[in-house]
Design a protein around this nucleic acid. Structure first.
Length: 901
RNA sequence: GGGUGGUUAGCUCAGCGGAAGAGCGUUCGCCUCACACGCGAAAGGUCACAGGUUCGAACCCUGUACCACCCACCA
């Protein structure tokens, strides 16, 4: 005898191994078959997968398995991402734990450690993908990595092509600098967060001693780098001082008062301190007015180029001291509580310093254009559609992309410099390593994959490579091409590109999706995929983002271990409606776990009655009414399922199978069938049960691969035709000949009847073990329908003797209820509380009467009759008739009550 | 400041023009020979608020109020 509850662990391990060993998911190029391809959003090799990955991978696996079972040549391209800053940070932490820094061990050995880490962590991640059930071929040669040789070739090619067309340039711009990660970031790698702070009002004295000007700032420490104060030219308060000079407090410098339209008269004091080096708006203004720019905050986030007192101090500390010093000098007018947005690094959460720096950029305006066009034309679509507008808006306002990072882990920028020509432009550290490059003095980079042999300008032979690496998203942007071997003209590229769909979370829509689309258009003239399925973020049960610091992280590995992968997949997907965020808690898995157990028990039921190694087939020539009902329900389920799947409405499709299997198949059909399973009808019934159940498993398989594969395999011995693997089976489709609408109506009224009797039993506390005697009355026609279903009523309502008679008046010693056209009389012995019974009937009457009145009024309403569609009117009339009938019967019953007992 | 989504049962959310739904939780009765991770029966909702369109509105329109997220250089 099988255990009562499903044990997922061994089953999952078994199928992971078998699927791989059989090579079922190996990519194959077959020009006669249509490919269905998804490239995985490569997980960063930063550690373990989280709940968001579980969702992302599950969604993709569903698309892939569904496509495979539909008969497409499905290929899910796996791989991992080197993950730039994020991964470097992980390694820095590891080193710190060992008491080392990356500077101490040097660039080369640091990179060695990183590659070793990739070896370990990459494997861990692939193992976890297996556990999630991903139908990926995990053989080594199929796994891609954003930094392996082939991907490196793609990165170089892309860089060269962009450089060749003048779309990559190096320039000095205001960029976002993370002092913690010690690198520049692109604009979209900064996260803004509201912070409570102060607006400090500081007095700047005029040099002519004619008074002072008060400026308001949220960053007093930057005043040390002020090179002007700006006012609006139309601001009468300041018209007389424009052009005068101010003495910059705490320093010996003098700065001018300038006039600029950008200054908001109504904000603060209407006078703005201008720190060109450390504020984007000030930088622009400085360019208009040709102001000096002084860097007072270093790349390490410490004060520099400033009075001795603050030199080398961290920004936060300098801020406090400066405010104190101003207060002491009587120059702090007020300290106003103030909320404002502060930029934080998306990788380490530290404060971002905007500052001016020479970096590599990609010109994006023209790259975005073709993508905008494709999107507007509908050739590129996002699901859900709500993302279309934000996506377009972002592309339309796109800014140049800073692609250089001052870290070590990543694709080194393929730019080389002649040491001889670069005497004034190349800066080396004490170890002789190139640490900084400036092209301001006209040094020309040579873009090349290998070290150039000879300088074309001076004939020199010594070259050094740019010390920076590329933004990790630069290689990710090429992923849908690089995975197929681009820029080589490979067969894979030819066959699989463009891919079919991309599945990812909305948080990387701009960071990744937009850039893939641009790269695809630029390098291939084709989008990498026609549509994107955008899903939400897995949050905790309160809707909070999961984070280590909040301590609300749920680890998918723990969940899978405890409840099984199928349960987790079910629970995630059933909630993933419309791409919304998912509030996930351990509690929400229980529904999935229960469902897995439920279907497992269906197989248990089958095994209990079926004879081993015997073939069971449905006999479609001798179907009874319940068989037809069930086939018809399954048929509709197939129809709805495939409609939803085609529209990418996965949760809705899953919900339909769930409801079919649990409510219709288990709760009704199996129950209907039980008496016949103990009779000579057994084989026939089992045949149908097995057939419909295994077909349901097929529909369910993309969502819950392990349990369905396991059950299918355990049942396949009963099947006349079956594949070796459920995952390679063909999906069942709806068949017209199995749609029995009349039968559905009939059975539905039968179900109502049974429910009414059960309710009656519950109301009068008749224990389930006690069989009852029942008489059902109705008109002749309805009676004839009931007669053939008599047995089902008896078993499902716990009836000993059932009499079905036309037009009967209430027999003595019975309680009664009305269901549709039927009046039900249940014999009772002993004492029944007549008052209670009266109250029950009165209550029902009270509920129905006003409704009936309302409907009657409506049916008489001329404008309703005139405007409403015909079926609607008919429906209402039928409802009125039924209700009138029912009310009449209820009143009759109430009347009889007194004499009947 | 702009944009997007949300406000429906105690909780998490479906439904998006024709009698208010699911899962979990709650109450009552059942270890009925697949399943107590189960079965049966129930309780529980002026569908945020105010107008409007319509024969008819949770659903469409217009406002309002909160909530969430995204974008934006207001010091």
């Amino acid at each position: 005898m099988l255990p009562k509850t499903y044990e997922p662990t061994n089953v999952e391990e078994k199928w992971i191994k078998i699927w791989q060993d059989q090579g079922l998911f190996k990519p194959k190029i077959d020009k006669n078959q249509k490919p269905f391809t998804i490239v995985i959003p490569p997980p960063n090799i930063t550690g373990a997968l989280h709940m968001g990955h579980a969702l992302d991978e599950t969604l993709q696996d569903i698309f892939i398995r569904y496509a495979r079972m539909k008969g497409n040549n499905a290929f899910w391209v796996p791989g991992t991402d080197h993950g730039g800053i994020a991964t470097q940070n992980v390694m820095e932490k590891i080193l710190k734990a060992e008491g080392k820094t990356k500077e101490e061990i040097g660039r080369e050995s640091f990179l060695e450690r990183m590659w070793k880490w990739y070896g370990e962590c990459g494997t861990t991640i692939l193992d976890q993908l297996k556990k999630i059930g991903c139908s990926i071929d995990f053989s080594k040669e199929n796994i891609r990595f954003t930094m392996d040789d082939q991907r490196a070739a793609a990165v170089f090619q892309a860089f060269k092509e962009l450089w060749g067309k003048g779309l990559i340039y190096r320039g000095e711009r205001m960029i976002n600098w993370c002092p913690r990660c010690y690198t520049a970031l692109s604009d979209i790698e900064v996260e803004y967060e509201e912070e409570k702070s102060f607006l400090w009002h500081i007095k700047y004295p005029l040099t002519d001693n004619s008074g002072h000007i008060t400026v308001a700032t949220t960053r007093p420490e930057t005043m040390l780098g002020d090179t002007a104060v700006a006012v609006n030219p139309s601001d009468k308060r300041y018209s007389k001082v424009i052009g005068k000079k101010l003495k910059l407090p705490l320093t010996n410098r003098e700065i001018p008062i300038i006039a600029d339209e950008a200054v908001d008269v109504s904000f603060g004091t209407g006078a703005v301190k201008i720190t060109p080096f450390h504020d984007p708006a000030d930088f622009e203004m400085a360019q208009r007015h040709n102001l000096e720019m002084i860097q007072v905050i270093s790349y390490h986030g410490k004060m520099e180029n400033c009075p001795e007192k603050y030199l080398g101090k961290k920004v936060e500390i300098a801020r406090k001291e400066i405010v104190e010093d101003l207060k002491e000098a009587g120059l702090l007018e007020k300290e106003e509580p103030y909320k404002h947005n502060v930029g934080r690094c998306y990788r380490c959460s530290n404060h971002i310093e905007p500052l001016i720096s020479e970096q590599w950029f990609v010109k994006t305006k023209n790259l975005a254009k073709p993508v905008i066009e494709k999107t507007k034309k509908g050739e590129f679509s996002l699901y859900p559609e709500n993302w279309k507008n934000p996506f377009l808006m972002w592309l339309e306002n796109i800014k140049d992309w800073c692609i250089s990072r001052q870290i070590w882990w990543g694709h080194r920028i393929p730019a080389w410099y002649c040491k001889n020509c670069g005497k004034e432009s190349l800066f080396f550290d004490e170890r002789g390593q190139l640490k900084r490059v400036s092209l301001k003095k006209g040094l020309k980079p040579v873009v090349s994959k290998e070290k150039p042999l000879k300088c074309e300008i001076c004939g020199g032979h010594e070259f050094v490579q740019d010390p920076d690496v590329l933004d990790t998203w630069f290689s990710s942007a090429l992923w849908p091409m690089s995975v197929f071997g681009w820029p080589e003209k490979t067969e894979e590229m030819e066959y699989f590109y463009p891919t079919s769909i991309l599945v990812t979370g909305y948080e990387i829509l701009y960071l990744w999706v937009a850039r893939m689309a641009m790269s695809g258009m630029f390098h291939q003239g084709k989008l990498p995929f026609p549509k994107v399925y955008v899903h939400g973020i897995v949050r905790d049960k309160h809707g909070q983002k999961m984070s280590k610091s909040k301590g609300n992280v749920i680890n998918p590995l723990d969940i899978m271990k405890k409840y099984g992968t199928d349960s987790m997949r079910f629970s995630l997907i059933i909630q993933a409606i419309g791409g919304k965020d998912i509030p996930f808690s351990e509690n929400s898995i229980i529904g999935g776990r229960n469902f897995v157990n439920k279907i497992y028990n269906v197989s248990r039921f089958i095994h209990l009655y079926a004879v081993k190694d015997r073939i069971y087939k449905p006999d479609y020539l001798s179907l009874d009414e319940t068989d037809k009902w069930m086939l018809s329900r399954f048929n509709e389920t197939c129809e709805i399922y495939s409609k939803y799947m085609e529209e990418m409405m996965l949760p809705e499709a899953l919900d339909r199978i769930y409801a079919f299997l649990w409510d219709e198949f288990c709760d009704w059909y199996i129950e209907f069938s039980k008496p016949q399973i103990n009779s000579n009808q057994k084989d026939k019934k089992l045949g149908l049960i097995i057939s419909v159940f295994t077909d349901s498993l097929k529909l369910l398989h993309p969502f819950m691969p392990f349990v369905t594969e396991e059950l299918y395999s355990s049942l396949s011995g009963y099947l006349e035709n079956h594949s070796n693997f459920l995952c390679m089976e063909k999906l069942p489709t709806a068949k017209k000949e199995f749609s029995f609408k009349e039968t559905e109506k009939k059975i539905s009224s039968l179900m109502d009847l049974i429910k009414t009797i059960r309710a009656l039993r519950a109301q009068f506390s008749i224990p389930p073990s006690k069989k009852i005697n029942v008489t059902i009355s109705a008109d002749e026609k309805a009676i004839s329908i009931l007669k053939e279903l008599e047995e089902h009523i008896k078993t499902l309502a716990g009836i000993e003797n059932l009499k079905i008679e036309p037009n009967l008046t209430k027999p003595p010693k019975t309680i009664a209820a009305v269901s549709g056209n039927f009046t039900i009389y249940v014999n009772v012995e002993g004492n029944i509380d007549i008052e209670k019974e009266k109250i029950r009937l009165k209550k029902e009457e009270k509920e129905l009467s006003p409704l009936l009145e309302k409907w009657k009024q409506k049916s008489l309403d001329e404008s309703f009759i005139k405007n409403a569609p015909e079926p609607e009117i008919a429906k209402l009339r039928e409802r009125i008739l039924d209700t009138e009938n029912k009310l009449k019967k209820i009143k009759e019953l109430a009347g009889y009550l007194d004499e009947a007992f």
